[in-house]
Nucleic acid binder design. Structure first.
Lengths: 112, 112
DNA sequence: CGTATCGGTAAGTCATCGCTTACGGTAAGT
DNA sequence: ACTTACCGTAAGCGATGACTTACCGATACG
């Protein structure tokens, strides 16, 4: 799975997650996204480039401005990975809880 | 949300995701996890420390060995964040698709 | 007891990342 | 055409991170 790798690395950065949350409200231009963020506008541009290459956002030209939107494709890949993982992990955890519960019930094996 | 931050940073690393996938099959000792991975055993120990602090794994002592298991708590936090985000993002995307479709249908505004 | 296995920690190195300032190129307004 | 707004890119810097080898405490085993 060489695709989802970029997405996970992309959302690892807090600033990038802030950008994503702003985009969740709807499409925004770069300047609007950068306004209020604690970093400069060029930094936001670089973050948007990373997010785009990860398949998490898409962009469209609108005159002199550039509008960025969420691209559900990348998000879907991440969710798929998590879900595939989630099932087996939960099963293993349930089995582990069961095992621990048996041991806690007062069984000992060798040394009294 | 200062909690999920650590989890996202943790699974951003490919080696750490490999560790998680091995743990998905069931609890494992450190040596077993490290075997076959392209990094040294101390490196795996450091990765496990990060995963533990992120709430993604938990550990239990078994004699001289230390058994690690998946902790669904951290995974749940990530899923929650993604899901909360997923809904609004999809809605925004649907609206955006609608908007684009209207423009694609052959409307022009000013310059012929 | 002595010896071996298991695994966490310390110290140091090398690459990568996120940020800044400076610049250039395109589109819109006058 | 001149100017202004908008935004991507280049260059450089400081910080963080992943890895290695070396070391050490703790637990089983003879």
């Amino acid at each position: 799975m060489p695709y989802g790798t970029a997405a996970f690395a992309a959302i690892a950065d807090p600033t990038r997650r802030q950008v994503m949350e702003r985009l969740a409200d709807g499409p925004r231009a770069v300047g609007e996204i950068a306004e209020g963020l604690p970093v400069s506008r060029p930094a936001v541009s670089q973050h948007l480039k990373v997010l785009k290459e990860a398949g998490l956002v898409s962009d469209r030209q609108d005159g002199a401005r550039r509008i960025y939107s969420i691209d559900p494709k990348g998000l879907g890949a991440m969710r798929a990975w998590l879900d595939r993982f989630w099932d087996t992990a939960l099963a293993a955890y349930a089995a582990e809880v069961e095992r621990t519960k048996v041991n806690d019930s007062g069984e000992e094996e060798a040394e009294p």
